[in-house]
């Protein structure tokens, strides 16, 4: 079963990666909203925002924009899953002698790859806009690791509506609140200017700790405890989403 699992996952990942290659517009659409937001924040609001830090605003807001990119990218995972479920491909795969979980893993790994490409596009635009970092290779690997873990967690979250939604719109609508989450965090403004209840929420949701960690790493500072809180959020979210997603999968395919 295990040898089948890896082989089948590789074959099915290859299949959905080919989808991405055939319709690169999914990468563009994923990157375009966060890029537009970045332009808006940097060139419209940025001048009026006092972040209390010495780094330029492009660099300040980039971590939040990266999380928004991931949140909008996983909507496509839900969409692709929904299409497979509704188009009958799932039934076809499930009635074949293959490792059943490979069908989900193929989509999940494709989501991670597609999101990484979108993130690269956004970072390149940020570089053009003046984002600078003294991060070492090791620092970059840490940032990539955190972002990959966050992508993986949100992807498994996206699997749930992909499997259970009744309509295409329903399958991707869940990502809107996720895209909004960075606004209620330290991503664009320091949390200490917010009213107490909002601040309490902002400081106790995953985005703030992830944003603060990545921001510190890019600035060449020690993120301290924040990075462990960020990782704990990601792993916790991943475990919960994975359990719920596989339960939904089993319910759908008894």
């Amino acid at each position: 079963m295990n040898t089948r699992f890896f082989g089948d996952t590789a074959i099915l990942t290859g299949r959905s990666l080919r989808h991405i290659g055939r319709s690169p517009d999914t990468i563009v659409t994923t990157a375009i909203t966060p890029i537009a937001m970045m332009l808006l924040f940097v060139y419209v609001f940025g001048g009026a925002i006092d972040t209390g830090s010495t780094e330029n605003y492009v660099s300040y807001q980039l971590p939040g924009i990266l999380l928004i990119t991931i949140a909008s990218g996983i909507a496509y995972t839900a969409y692709r899953l929904f299409q497979d479920k509704n188009g009958g491909m799932f039934d076809r795969f499930q009635s074949m002698p293959i490792a059943r979980s490979a069908v989900l893993w193929g989509h999940v790994l494709t989501s991670v790859v597609a999101n990484m490409i979108s993130l690269v596009v956004v970072v390149l635009v940020a570089l053009l806009m003046g984002f600078r970092t003294g991060a070492s290779v090791l620092d970059w690997l840490a940032v990539i690791g955190i972002l990959a873990l966050f992508t993986l967690a949100l992807t498994w979250l996206a699997v749930i509506p992909g499997l259970t939604a009744g309509t295409v719109e329903g399958a991707s609508a869940f990502s809107y609140p996720l895209i909004f989450l960075p606004f209620l965090s330290s991503a664009f403004v320091p949390t200490d200017t917010m009213p107490a209840p909002v601040q309490a929420f902002a400081e106790h949701q995953p985005v703030t700790s992830i944003v603060d960690s990545i921001r510190a790493i890019f600035a060449g500072q020690d993120p301290g405890n924040e990075v462990w809180i960020a990782l704990a959020w990601c792993v916790g979210l991943l475990v919960v989403a994975y359990v719920l997603a596989t339960a939904a999968y089993r319910r759908r395919f008894a």
Binding site: L12, R15, G87, G88, M89
Partner: peptide
Amino acid sequence: RGSISLTGQFAAVDEILTARENLILIAKL
């Protein structure tokens, strides 16, 4: 599952792939 194959109510074909790629996908699996 090793003994059967299913052609469901809707043509379960990957539209983004070519016919040849669809066939190769199933042959590999």
